[in-house]
Amino acid sequence: MPLQRKVFPDIESLSQGFADFAATALQNTLNRKPQATLVVPGGSTPRHYLPALAKCKLPWDRITVTLSDERWVNVNDDQSNEKLIKQHLLSHLPANTPFVGLKTSHDNPFDAIEALHQRLDSLPLPVSLTVLGLGEDGHIASLFPGMNPDSLSAHHCVAVAPPIAPSLRVSLSLEMLANSEQIVLVVTGEGKRRLLDRLTTNPDTKIPFIWLSQLTNSEIIVFETNEK
């Protein structure tokens, strides 16, 4: 498994290390291309490292920000990843920073896939940098164990009814994630580090993170803390 693991003593130093790496990766893309695309996740950990990234001096008007996945809720709902990203990243960036959300006016994500595919197809592709978290069960974005990885690549995104969750979701497809030029995984907490240790030595093909690692040609860079 092509993994490079960078270990930090705490979330503050991880956030700075991540921001430096991400800014360099995005700038390297912009040195070669007119536009770049940044994919960011929801969850609690990005509240720490996204503001650090926002402080980096980049031509943000040339970087389109989008999400790895989204809950099918109103974008002003506290559960909305779009709301989180606007609060912790976009509000610190220039107003002309392009953003593409994953929520539409459709009643459910299953009806929205074609429209979202077209929306995502307008992005500068492949994605320059994808940032992901890792669930305790090994899920990434909203791709969960139990899903069929072979059925996930017809569109740039998939609709998901998670096994245990209050809302439907939409997720970037496995193929779109895997085709990213750079992939970063941010891991905090002892349980997730142990899971990563186990998957590194014993790749479990039922785990979405393993699907990604086997499909991508990119090295996956892991930013992790060694805090309990």
Rank of each mutant, 00 (worst) to 15 (best):
A161P: 11
A161T: 13
A161C: 08
P162S: 05
P163M: 04
I164W: 10
I164D: 12
I164E: 10
I164M: 10
A165F: 14
A165W: 14
P166T: 01
P166N: 11
P166A: 08
P166F: 12
P166G: 06
S167R: 09
S167A: 13
S167G: 03
S167I: 01
L168I: 00
L168G: 03
R169I: 00
R169M: 02
V170M: 11
V170N: 12
S171V: 00
S171A: 09
L172V: 04
L172R: 04
L174H: 04
L174C: 08
L174S: 06
E175P: 11
E175M: 04
E175G: 15
M176S: 08
M176I: 00
L177H: 05
L177V: 05
A178D: 01
A178C: 03
A178V: 04
A178S: 11
N179F: 00
N179G: 04
S180I: 06
S180D: 03
E181S: 11
E181I: 03
E181W: 01
E181Y: 01
Q182L: 06
Q182T: 09
Q182N: 12
I183L: 14
V184N: 04
V184I: 12
L185V: 07
L185Q: 05
L185Y: 05
L185R: 02
V187E: 03
V187S: 02
T188L: 00
T188R: 00
T188H: 00
G189K: 05
G189L: 04
E190F: 03
E190N: 08
G191Y: 03
G191F: 01
G191V: 03
G191E: 13
K192S: 03
K192W: 09
R193F: 00
R194G: 10
R194F: 06
R194C: 10
R194S: 14
L195P: 01
L195M: 07
L195G: 02
L196W: 02
D197H: 06
R198C: 10
L199Q: 13
L199V: 09
T200Y: 01
T201Y: 04
T201M: 06
T201A: 13
T201W: 00
N202Y: 07
N202Q: 11
N202R: 08
P203F: 08
P203G: 11
P203A: 07
P203E: 05
P203I: 06
D204L: 08
D204A: 05
D204M: 08
T205R: 14
T205F: 12
K206C: 09
K206E: 13
K206P: 01
I207Y: 09
I207L: 08
P208C: 10
P208Y: 08
P208S: 11
F209E: 10
F209P: 15
F209R: 02
F209W: 12
I210F: 12
I210C: 14
W211S: 14
W211Q: 13
W211A: 15
W211N: 14
L212N: 10
L212C: 11
L212T: 13
S213G: 12
S213Y: 06
S213N: 15
S213M: 10
S213H: 10
Q214I: 10
Q214M: 15
Q214G: 14
L215P: 06
L215Y: 11
L215R: 15
T216H: 14
T216V: 12
T216M: 14
T216G: 15
T216N: 14
T216Q: 13
N217L: 13
N217H: 15
S218Q: 12
E219L: 12
E219S: 13
E219Y: 07
